[in-house]
């Protein structure tokens, strides 16, 4: 398949854009890659900015609206800036039964943010998430998609301190 993407005005690094354009050109139905491309561009910007939506659309020969429809649909695509560490707190029924609420209250208090917010130093974002498939380790959370559980307040404190120290 021919690729007509103009690489001269790329906001994202030329190498990344070329890599994506090559992947897209290599498959029969480019739209099958839209989630992969959104992830790749999001990894670069930190979130899927308005510009990024347009870049993805251009790469895949879609309209920005078509990409927007997907970007706002999926849990792991962020249309607003997020922190260095995105904490997804599972609030489905098993984690709920095993103490999700006290875990969330603690996180919220310790970080000084509510669900949907990011700490002012840009370190942590707090988001709710549906059952992450770790009910055998409830209550569980994800930090940058890595799972932690079963959690207690103490363990959670240790994890946060470690992440702060590493940053």
């Amino acid at each position: 398949m021919k690729c007509n993407v103009d690489l001269t005005y790329a906001m994202i690094p030329k190498e990344l854009k070329e890599l994506l354009a090559r992947q897209i050109a290599g498959i029969e139905h480019p739209r099958e890659l839209v989630v992969d491309v959104m992830f790749a561009v999001q990894d670069h910007y930190g979130y899927l900015s308005d510009e990024a939506v347009e870049e993805v659309a251009e790469l895949l020969d879609m309209s920005p609206l078509e990409v927007e429809q997907l970007a706002t649909f999926y849990t792991f695509i962020y249309r607003e800036p997020v922190g260095k560490y995105v904490i997804h707190v599972c609030d489905s029924v098993i984690c709920w039964m095993e103490g999700h609420e006290s875990l969330l209250d603690h996180l919220s208090g310790k970080l000084g943010i509510n669900l949907g917010e990011t700490t002012s130093d840009g370190m942590f974002s707090l988001l709710p998430v549906c059952c992450i498939g770790y009910c055998d380790r409830a209550p569980a959370i994800l930090i940058n998609k890595k799972v932690y559980g079963p959690l207690t307040i103490e363990k959670l404190n240790d994890i946060l301190e470690r992440l702060r120290a590493e940053a």
Binding site: S92, V93, I94, C130, C131, G133, Y134, C135
Partner: peptide
């Protein structure tokens, strides 16, 4: 895609 709450067998 296994997202049914309580289900983690596929993983």
């Amino acid at each position: 895609d296994e997202m049914e709450p309580g289900t983690f067998k596929d993983r």
